[in-house]
Amino acid sequence: MGLLIPLLTIIFSGLVPYTILSIIGSALFFTGFYLEIKGEDELNLLKWGREYQEYEEEVPMLNFILGAWRQIKRQ
């Protein structure tokens, strides 16, 4: 749901002009989202140690396409 909010500027671009402010807003959102993920990774590494480090090496940090594909297959 959090990713839908910055995409609303693209979805409604037929009704509302897509401005430079919406581009900047989307870029700031995705930058913040990425930094939040990195912060969570650091906390998990402190909490779980070597086990989480091994998990990080096996699993990609961001993979929306694979996640969407798995969700479709489950339904």
Rank of each mutant, 00 (worst) to 15 (best):
M1L: 06
M1Q: 02
G2E: 12
G2H: 01
L3N: 10
L3Y: 11
L3P: 03
I5H: 10
P6C: 09
P6L: 08
P6H: 10
L7A: 04
L7S: 03
L8H: 01
L8S: 08
L8A: 08
T9I: 02
I11V: 15
I11H: 09
I11K: 07
I11E: 04
F12G: 01
F12S: 03
F12L: 11
S13N: 04
S13D: 04
S13T: 11
G14F: 14
G14Q: 11
G14L: 10
G14P: 05
G14V: 05
L15K: 04
L15G: 01
L15N: 06
V16Y: 11
V16Q: 06
P17K: 02
Y18T: 00
Y18C: 01
Y18A: 01
Y18H: 09
T19A: 00
T19E: 00
I20R: 06
L21H: 08
L21T: 09
L21D: 04
S22D: 11
I23S: 07
I23L: 07
I23V: 11
I24G: 01
G25Q: 06
G25V: 06
A27Y: 06
L28D: 00
F29W: 13
F29C: 03
F30P: 04
F30C: 06
T31R: 07
T31N: 10
T31G: 07
T31C: 12
T31F: 13
G32Y: 00
G32L: 03
F33C: 02
F33E: 04
Y34E: 14
Y34C: 10
Y34T: 14
Y34M: 13
L35T: 11
L35E: 09
L35F: 15
L35D: 06
E36Y: 06
E36G: 08
E36F: 08
E36S: 11
E36R: 05
K38C: 09
K38D: 09
G39V: 03
G39P: 01
G39A: 13
E42Q: 04
E42G: 02
E42N: 04
E42V: 11
L43A: 13
L43G: 02
N44R: 15
N44Y: 14
N44C: 14
L45A: 13
L45C: 06
L46R: 14
L46Q: 10
L46D: 10
K47R: 14
W48T: 02
E51I: 10
E51A: 15
Y52A: 03
Y52I: 03
Q53L: 14
Q53G: 09
E54P: 02
Y55S: 01
Y55Q: 05
E57D: 14
E57V: 07
E58N: 08
V59N: 10
V59F: 07
P60A: 03
M61Q: 12
M61G: 00
L62K: 09
N63I: 01
F64W: 12
F64Q: 05
F64R: 04
I65R: 07
I65W: 09
I65L: 11
L66Y: 07
G67M: 10
G67K: 14
G67Q: 14
W69H: 11
W69M: 11
W69E: 11
R70G: 03
Q71Y: 15
I72Y: 12
K73M: 08
Q75K: 15
